[in-house]
């Protein structure tokens, strides 16, 4: 049984400009007794404020909100990358975070080497790693590029490799940012099936998207983030009807109806 619990989580980003990055400035400030003042006056962005929710197996949560509302930060916090300044997070289950296309790959290394590194990170055996290599290579269709450094890839190839890599290992908890929905049409067709299998296979899905029809299609719960706080937490229909304008909401529903006819999921 996978679960995620966030209790009263706050995350704030220190804003470092060139001055606070300098040791000399910090030492001089301390020497002249300005550090205390500086500490309190330090500019921080409160990216998340007292966010609480919990998810269990079967939950498909979507985040909506305007740009800068804290959706991506919240996904990074759920992935355990950003540790909160306040509050507590418990994560039970293997997490895969599809946060950016690069997937932390090293651009100087070849595609194959990057796949191997990911396998080692997930502590796979040598056998499983060669299986992973085959699977990702078949999906990403990189052919001879697989043995060239990732920096020589086109951006489309990086997305295919990153996506293939992230979706090859089945997670219990899947965190997805909206970049996935931004691929070109060709890629989307191909990625769709793989992604849908993965979404269905995951015990918990957390999704951040600007596309209401994707939220309606995949989620059974929606949280509306606004200025780092939870503004609304309810069913997709309810949240979207207040988040979207009536016309947009109707349009999303129509789109959703057409899709569910066209592609049985």
């Amino acid at each position: 049984m996978s679960s995620i619990t966030m209790s009263d989580v706050s995350v704030s980003f220190p804003l470092y400009h060139s001055e606070s990055r300098s040791l000399k400035k910090a030492v001089l400030a301390a020497a002249s007794g300005r550090l205390g003042k500086d500490e309190k006056r330090r500019v921080v962005v409160e990216a998340l404020r007292n966010v609480s929710f919990s998810l269990q197996t079967g939950d498909r949560l979507g985040f909506v909100g305007s740009n800068g509302a804290g959706k991506t930060t919240l996904l990074r916090t759920l992935a355990g990358i950003y540790e909160p300044v306040d509050g507590r997070i418990s994560i039970n289950g293997k997490v895969t975070a599809l946060l950016d296309p690069g997937q932390g790959m090293n651009a100087e290394l070849t595609g194959r080497e990057n796949i191997r590194l990911r396998g080692l990170f997930d502590r796979l055996s040598a056998n499983q790693i060669s299986q992973l290599e085959e699977d990702v290579a078949a999906f990403a269709e990189l052919d001879q590029f697989l043995d060239l450094p990732v920096r020589t890839y086109s951006s489309g190839m990086v997305v295919r490799l990153g996506f293939g890599l992230a979706t090859a290992i089945k997670p219990q908890i899947l965190l997805m940012d909206e970049w996935l929905m931004a691929g070109d049409a060709n890629f989307m067709d191909k990625a769709k099936q793989r992604l849908e299998t993965m979404v269905q296979g995951a015990e918990i899905l957390v999704l951040s998207s600007h596309a209401p029809n994707i939220i309606l299609q995949w989620c059974n719960r929606v949280i509306w983030m606004d200025k780092g706080r939870v503004k609304m937490d309810s069913t997709p229909q309810e949240v979207l009807s207040s988040y979207l304008s009536p016309e947009q909401f109707a349009e999303a529903n129509d789109l959703m109806a057409i899709r569910s006819l066209a592609i049985p999921i």
Partner: peptide, 10 residues
């Protein structure tokens, strides 16, 4: 769920 996938961050 293997133990290394049980994370608690406080």
């Amino acid at each position: 769920i293997s133990p290394e996938n049980r994370i608690s961050i406080t």
